[in-house]
């Protein structure tokens, strides 16, 4: 039970909490406290020091929107944003309750009457923006993986393909999302005219921009992994005369999985970073747009709200990375 809990913590990226479990189970207190101090205490001190320096320094910076907000103001704005979100949710609930009551009343009077249901017209809250951002990055990440994995496998299995594609890959790899965005915007505007309501145009534009920037690490890592599969494994596959498909699925891919996941992990990180920039310019509802809107808004709270967004972006990026680390540990066979 204890061993399982520790293993779970290690796998999920919470290895710093292991000493707490060990303490709870009554292991040597002094030793565990030393570890705990090193794992939690030191980072905690660093954070406190950072917050202190921030608040001191911020007081001395005057901007056109007032003094640069310190940690206290940012914390306050985070609360405000949360309250706004809860407020909107309550309003939405009340709105739907009223609508339902009205509709049932109409139906009682006349069962054949046509009733209409309207979705709540309130504005997107901060939490909604976060959810949209996550959806967009996920979509972009999936598209990137679907493109990068097959091409990566192809590049890895044939030296000729790799030599042929390498210059293109190397040139496209360092291109900034800001350069892709206008092109993607124009192409999507020209191509995606159906407007069937599945996806917003801005959503697709941001997602595709994310894909274009984040597919390279997965592609290159997959290619490298496939090309460097242990020759013994390949020999076994040859002796057993596995079909090319079986060879790929049973031998090459499992052997490459750890490297592929390293690539996916970097891709997701890049994608998340790119997304904010893409959202800012594409006006896709999301954290990027939130930052941009607050910047344009220019109220005295704006800077604090943007800082809340900065911290949120960082925390989510960190969590996404931890998620990929956990997945990587699950598929690693060593």
């Amino acid at each position: 039970m204890k061993a399982k809990a520790i293993q779970l913590l290690n796998y999920s990226g919470f290895s710093w909490a292991v000493p707490i479990v060990k303490l709870a189970s009554g292991e040597d207190i002094k030793q565990q406290f030393t570890i705990l101090w090193k794992r939690i205490g030191m980072p905690f001190c660093a954070i406190v020091l950072f917050l202190f320096l921030w608040s001191v320094a911020a007081k001395n910076v005057q901007t056109s929107l007032g003094v640069l907000p310190g940690p206290v103001m940012v914390y306050h704005q985070a609360n405000v944003l949360w309250q706004e979100h809860m407020g909107e949710r309550t309003k939405a609930r009340e709105f739907y309750a009223r609508q339902d009551a009205r509709n049932t009343a109409i139906l009682q009077q006349n069962p054949d009457a046509t009733i209409k249901t309207v979705s709540y017209p309130g504005k997107a809250t901060y939490i909604d923006q976060i959810i949209t951002s996550l959806k967009t990055v996920f979509m972009g990440f999936v598209i990137a993986s679907l493109i990068a994995l097959p091409i990566g496998i192809l590049c890895g299995s044939s030296k000729n393909v790799m030599t042929a594609l390498n210059p293109i890959i190397q040139v496209l790899k360092p291109v900034s999302p800001l350069a892709w965005l206008p092109i993607v915007t124009m192409v999507i505007s020209a191509v995606y005219t159906t407007n069937n309501g599945w996806f917003e145009k801005s959503f697709i534009i941001s997602a595709l921009t994310v894909s274009l920037c984040s597919l390279w690490p997965t592609l290159l890592n997959t290619a490298m992994g496939v090309a460097s599969v242990n020759t013994d494994y390949i020999n076994v596959a040859r002796v057993l005369q596995l079909s090319p498909f079986k060879k790929t699925t049973k031998v090459v891919l499992p052997a490459t999985l750890p490297l592929i996941f390293t690539g996916l992990r970097i891709s997701l990180g890049v994608g998340w970073m790119v997304l904010i920039a893409a959202e800012m310019l594409a006006q896709n509802p999301g954290l990027g747009k939130f930052v941009w809107d607050e910047f344009q808004n220019g109220s005295s709270d704006s800077l604090a709200r943007i800082m809340v967004a900065v911290i949120t972006i960082g925390l989510i990026g960190f969590m996404l990375d931890q998620l990929m680390v956990a997945l990587q540990r699950l598929v690693s066979f060593e």
């Binding site: 242990n230 013994d232 494994y233 020999n235 076994v236 040859r238 002796v239 057993l240 005369q241 049973k250 031998v251 499992p254 052997a255 066979f333 060593e334």
Partner: peptide, 16 residues
């Protein structure tokens, strides 16, 4: 190569 010749390699070469 073919499975009519069973090879035992120097390293076990199992799929881990």
């Amino acid at each position: 190569p073919g499975p009519d010749r069973g090879v035992i390699f120097q390293s076990p070469s199992l799929f881990p």
